[in-house]
Design a protein around this nucleic acid. Structure first.
Length: 462
DNA sequence: GAGACCTTTTT
DNA sequence: AAAAGGTCT
């Protein structure tokens, strides 16, 4: 009787999971999840984790096993489990977070013995990045060049195999012991918008393919329309396999070649996630330190009240406020609006991007270190292949362009529900004219833009 | 080393 | 039409 320990991490699913696939060659699979965080503040991402674990535990149970849930230092817990049960092999997928690199290496080195096999898999991304390099063998710094090469790579075909989960009972915490959800908190609303878990992920993606993929490139930039797939939180916790998404889209292209352009633009978006992890690997502190060092000298002007206005959707710029309220209500922000609110924080308010990163970390159900770190640095202009620093999004211009009928704005700002779109798009006028309880713009666009650009002039010397 | 190119723009 | 600098071939 051989036993494999399967350590679940950011791969909370049974289908097309490389580590689990390897474990399934053993007579018995013992599945464990280890929650590492020890502080008590719970985040939107924890909310997603809770229900993902619930779904995973249920799937494992229906196959006769039981998911072991633990909290603490993974190395100690794995050591304990391996010593307690006669484990023949340990399998897990790489997390790709900088903090885990050493741990993963150590586990493979320390626990591999003549009788125990330990292996760590690359399961989270589409591409093997050591293969995607420039002619000088260096990692790409420009996405378009990266994508040109990446799209030609072979991607491992999805594979599934039924695992025999161990029927023994193990010492485990109850899911509720992790205290991942707080139903008195803002997150109690999320259930109205989301159902985490593997089955939901697969079904939701199938619905997107059938209903929305063909018009993806036309609609994805319009937050008032149903154009995006909203798969990001499922990907963040690995409720779905990225490879299965890739091949599902490829199948769609085969079946409906007339929609190949739309489908390609979706695949390109998936590749951005890979590119973000590539950057995190190159710059382990991508989430805190600007890649372009000159940005350490930017004359930031942190103001607590302005920051609070941004967080609570009270800036007086309707598209910014709609985005921040959508975030608070649902745990997600439409991609187009995400860029606008981020640009507003960094350039109009001149608040360091790390504050925005931290707020997103707390409130996004799709929080992902690499995507967010890259995104904030892109908006700031401090990143690799970033938006030029002089590009300051005009929040009302963006609203006119991408939410001309103000459908999205009205969805999230009830105060404006009876205001005509053209009035919404001229923020200086409508409050006085319509006697609405909605704030005046907290900063003047032209002035803020000028100050932001002056700030960038200042760091050029460095 | 020249030239093409650059996710998401602005006034 | 201009802002403007780096990356890649």
């Amino acid at each position: 009787m051989t036993k494999a320990l399967m350590w679940f991490r950011y791969d909370l699913r049974l289908h097309d999971n490389l580590a689990l696939l390897a474990a399934s060659d053993f007579d018995e699979v013992i599945p464990v999840f280890i929650y590492e965080k020890t502080n008590s503040a719970t985040t939107a991402s924890d909310w997603w984790l809770h229900y993902s674990l619930e779904a995973l535990a249920e799937s494992i149970k229906s196959r006769g096993g039981s998911l072991i849930i633990r909290q603490g230092n993974p190395q100690l817990i794995i050591e304990e489990l391996m010593n307690t049960f006669q484990i023949d092999a340990l399998f897990f997928n790489r997390s790709l977070l900088s903090k885990d690199v050493l741990l993963e290496q150590e586990l493979v080195e320390k626990y591999s013995t003549k009788t125990t096999y330990v292996k760590c898999f690359d399961d989270r991304l589409l591409f093997y990045h050591h293969k995607i390099v420039t002619k000088n063998q260096t990692p790409y710094k420009v996405f378009s060049s990266y994508w040109k090469i990446a799209k030609l790579q072979y991607i491992t075909f999805p594979q599934n195999k039924n695992s025999s989960f161990s029927k023994d009972t193990f010492d485990s915490l109850a899911l509720d012991d992790l205290k991942l959800i707080d139903n008195h908190h803002w997150m109690k609303k999320f259930g109205a918008y989301w159902t985490p878990g593997e089955q939901q992920a697969i079904q939701k993606f199938e619905d997107f393919i059938e209903q929305d993929l063909a018009s993806y490139n036309k609609l994805r930039d319009f937050p008032g329309k149903q154009g995006t797939s909203d798969m990001s939180p499922y990907l963040a916790w690995g409720n779905i396999s990225i490879r299965s998404m890739w091949y599902r889209v490829k199948r769609f292209i085969d079946e409906q070649p007339e929609h190949a352009d739309a489908a390609d633009s979706y695949l390109r978006q998936l590749a951005w996630r890979d590119f973000a992890y590539e950057q995190l690997a190159q710059f382990p502190d991508l989430d805190r330190v600007p890649v372009r060092k000159a940005f350490q000298h930017y004359p930031w002007a942190f103001d607590e009240d302005l920051f609070t206005a941004w967080k609570t959707g009270q800036t007086g710029y309707p598209l910014v406020d709609a985005g921040m309220r959508e975030l608070w209500e649902t745990g997600i922000i439409h991609n187009r609006v995400r860029m606008v609110v981020a640009s507003f924080l960094v350039k109009h308010l001149r608040i360091p991007w790390q504050y925005g990163y931290d707020w997103f970390k707390e409130t996004l159900v799709d929080f992902d270190t690499a995507n967010n770190a890259m995104g904030w640095q892109w908006v700031t202009g401090s990143g690799i292949d970033a938006a030029p620093y002089f590009r300051v999004f005009n929040p009302t211009g963006q609203a006119q362009k991408f939410d001309s009928g103000a459908l999205y704005i009205k969805r999230w700002i009830p105060e404006l529900k009876d205001v005509p779109p053209d009035v919404i798009h001229s923020p200086q006028k409508y409050v006085a004219a319509h006697q609405i309880s909605y704030p005046q713009p907290i900063v003047d666009h032209a002035t803020a833009r000028k100050l932001a650009l002056e700030g960038f002039e200042h760091i050029k010397k460095h």
